[in-house]
Simulated assay, not measured.
Amino acid sequence: MCRACPSRRWLLGALAAVPLAACSENVETGRNQLILVDDGQLAGLADQAWSDLRGKTPLLRDPEAQARVGRVGAGIAKATGRTDLDWGYAVFDSPDVNAFVLPNGKVAVFRGLLDAVRSDDELAAVMGHEAGHVVARHAAERVSQQLAVQAGVSLAQILLSEQAGENADEIAGALGMGAMYGVILPYSRKHELEADVLGLTLMEKAGHEPRAAVAFWERRIAEAKGQPNVPEVLSTHPADATRLARLREAVQTSPSASGGRG
């Protein structure tokens, strides 16, 4: 076995030190996270992304709908305690049954979602989920994981270049695929489940009924029955059955489970 050159030894040491230097506990999730980027960096990128979205995607011309989303969203935002963020909401004129959040607290809701929810409680379930991503710092964790994977693959490529020769790129590519299916995608599915559970807590703090989240997803899953699905192992999101089971379990353990609301 050949001895690594000083530069390679330095790279190995630096890469090994990164997780120790950047690992911190998130009080919202109760687990450690690898964070290599700060919230300020992501917020700047998110500001630009939000500006681009508003410039390219038409807003829904319905003041009542915009006000409704803003009202429900404001309650969820207050429940997060993240007063450092400039939370903002917009309903875009698209049939997609979807919503997403940026790490700067800007939430996009599509017209299709408003058509799909049957109450403010169901809307709060979706918006609570999106806010859950923010308080859990999922965006920072995802970017950090991707940076770490890229650094690891690049380092492997350097270390393999002499021994593997022309096969180094193929081996590095295989390592990258392994990281994608072994780290990136599993964590993405974990993030979605965490956001679901955090969303239940946030919507309840904001005065909404957590069981509405279960009702919404039960209906959405029933409507999608028979449609082709990507296998869970290849998806960024957990399987519908996994997601629904976790939601039901979390609702059963929520403070309002015993008596509900009148």
Rank of each mutant, 00 (worst) to 15 (best):
Thr236Gln: 06
Val233Gln: 03
Gly226Pro: 14
Glu209Trp: 01
Ala213Met: 14
Thr242Lys: 06
Ala239Arg: 09
Leu244Ala: 01
Ala222Asn: 10
His237Leu: 13
Ile221Arg: 13
Phe216Lys: 01
Gly226Arg: 15
Ala222Pro: 07
Ala224Met: 08
Gly207Cys: 06
Gly207Phe: 04
Arg219Cys: 04
Pro231Arg: 04
Pro228Cys: 10
His208Tyr: 06
Pro228Val: 13
Glu223Arg: 15
Glu209Val: 05
Ala213Val: 09
Glu218Val: 08
Ala213Leu: 12
His237Thr: 07
Ala222Tyr: 08
Ser235Met: 11
Ser235Val: 12
Val214Gln: 06
Gly226Thr: 14
Gly226Met: 14
Glu218Lys: 14
Ala215Glu: 12
Pro210Gln: 12
Ala222Glu: 15
Glu218Gln: 15
Pro238Met: 07
Pro210Lys: 02
Arg211Leu: 10
Trp217Arg: 02
Pro238His: 08
Arg243Pro: 06
Arg211Asn: 11
Lys225Gly: 14
Ala212Leu: 12
Glu232Trp: 00
Pro231Trp: 02
Ile221Pro: 05
Val230Pro: 02
Leu234Arg: 01
Ala212Tyr: 09
Trp217Glu: 04
Val233Tyr: 02
Gln227Tyr: 06
Glu218Ile: 08
Thr242Ile: 05
Ser235Asp: 15
Trp217Phe: 11
Ala241Lys: 11
Ala222Thr: 14
Ala239Ser: 15
